[in-house]
Amino acid sequence: MPVLTYRDALNHALREEMERDPDVFLMGEEVGVYQGAYKVSRGLLQQFGDRRVIDTPIAELGFAGIGVGAAMVGLRPVIEFMTWNFALLAIDEVVNSAAKMLYMSGGQIPIPIVFRGPGGAALQLGAQHSQAFESWLANVPGLKVVAPATPYDAKGLLKSAIRDDNPVIFLEGEMLYNNKGEIPEGEYTVPLGLADVKRAGTDVTIVCHSKTVATAEKAARQLAGEHGLEAEVVDLRTIRPLDTETLLASVRKTNRCVIVEEGWPFCGVGAQVVDEIQRHAFDDLDAPVERVTGADVPMPYNKLLERAAKPSVDAVIGAARRAAYVD
């Protein structure tokens, strides 16, 4: 099977969907002439021209709204935010316009749009450029929220997101763009709303998504090798709608759960997952559910402080050992 980077997997998804459907277009800052701030859109301007690959001014609110307006009359825009940090300027159009239009109009006006770009922290970019917005966006009915971890999932999920008739928030990882993985030849999609068991195990479930999948997998290897615990790694892939079925099946098997996410702890994705577990798998729990999150602080610049603020392999191992009563 060919091996592609996460970046190129996304590029292929965009290219294939734009070839497949003339209503799909890509709009955002630096997506055209510059070939994408993170080169996700490399070559698309050359292939599709400036009618369908549109460079915008730095005006997130405006071009997000223009995308929603185009979707209202039937086009299928892909709006790229250079990073999700800048998307805060456009939150009104995402929440008040895109998410609510179908409902407010009594079902008349669907919004088939994808808002995509990198979220979460990279390295030493400081407080304003290092944050994860999954839980904010997943709070809003009307939005779907996707955060793939692997090149395979990135391509398959982006294709599904573009074909979906609802607004989809597509959170990529800046630190993931160079990761490589196998991608099958030919057409495939990954459906929205399905979690994926990335590693099977019996002793503790580790729930994760996006960048923390790699953290969880590394922790799982060490837990097996050094601590005698077989962890099951469940990658949510889609935060909303949440695949509770896969999640609960795993917890019912292992009776213990650790949730890892990059975002802040308060009202985080993990809080929602814990809620599902305690309500639907209460009698299967042998230990309180553990959470490993980003530190509850704005991201510091200093390298050591930053490292301490991110969910680490060691923290996941510690949480898993607590959940399994090893300590």
Partner: peptide, 24 residues
Amino acid sequence: ASPLAKRLARERGIDLRIVTGSGP
């Protein structure tokens, strides 16, 4: 007792009051 321990005890007819707990 953990919820799971309670369920298992119930299913197996074990009186939890005579079981020594090893958890926190």
